[in-house]
Computed example of a mutant assay.
Amino acid sequence: MNPKKDVTESVYYKLAGQIGHIIFLQLMFVISIFPIPLPFLFVKYEIGNFIFMTPLFFLVAPALAALSSATLYVLESEDVKHLGIYFWKQYRKLFLDALKIGIPVILAASIILIDIASMQKSSTPIFSWFFILLLLVL
């Protein structure tokens, strides 16, 4: 005789639980980077405004680090509890380490974007491409 299995032991139930946890983590990620798109609603698209808002993009690096850490926690753990609290603890714990990697990457990306925007307005675009290539080589 086969004993009846509980509904919570089903593979589909566990898969649906993990998908729910991952969707919740995505929502936590969006909440953690919410200050980034908010200023774009109220300012014009200009290079000066982009330079002013570049420090907001530094929030992305710790949010990605916390998202990846919490996702690994969901995938490795059998019993996931207090996922939101775990996400914010990882965000706070990994904040400085993620900024060490994120700041140079974000600064390089912002320089490239500003160069491309100024290249579109200049009459000699070859010099702008030279600086973009120089930055990539650097």
Rank of each mutant, 00 (worst) to 15 (best):
L15M: 15
S68G: 04
S123Q: 09
W88E: 00
A98D: 06
Q26A: 14
L72V: 03
K89C: 02
D79K: 15
Q120E: 09
D79R: 14
Y13Q: 06
I85V: 11
L15Q: 11
R92I: 13
F87T: 05
F57T: 11
I23H: 06
Q26I: 13
E9Y: 09
I85Q: 09
F24G: 06
Y91G: 01
N49C: 06
F87P: 04
N2R: 13
I22G: 02
F29L: 15
L135N: 12
F130M: 10
D79E: 14
S122Q: 02
I106N: 09
L134I: 02
S77N: 15
T124H: 10
I19K: 11
K89H: 10
I31H: 03
L25R: 00
S32M: 04
Y91W: 11
S118L: 15
V105A: 15
V60N: 08
N2Q: 13
H21G: 03
I36D: 06
V137Q: 06
R92D: 09
I126H: 05
A66I: 05
F50P: 00
S77W: 04
K5N: 12
A108W: 03
Q90H: 04
P39R: 02
W88R: 00
L83F: 09
S69I: 00
K93T: 08
L56A: 08
F40Y: 15
P62C: 09
F24S: 13
S118M: 11
L96H: 09
V74N: 02
A65G: 09
G102L: 09
G20W: 13
Q90V: 01
L15N: 11
G84K: 03
P35I: 02
E46R: 11
A61G: 06
S68R: 10
Q90K: 15
L15V: 14
I112G: 06
I31C: 04
K121Q: 15
S32Q: 01
E78H: 07
V30Q: 13
L64K: 13
Y91N: 05
Q90T: 08
H82G: 09
G102T: 07
K4Y: 13
Q26S: 14
I106L: 07
P3D: 10
L72E: 14
T8P: 00
Y91F: 15
I114L: 12
A108I: 14
A70M: 01
Y13A: 08
G84N: 02
A70Y: 03
V30I: 12
L27W: 05
S110H: 14
A98C: 07
Y86P: 00
F87Q: 03
Y45P: 01
S122H: 06
F40R: 07
F50Y: 11
S68C: 04
L113W: 05
S32K: 03
V137A: 12
L94R: 15
V137T: 07
H21T: 00
P3H: 10
T124Q: 11
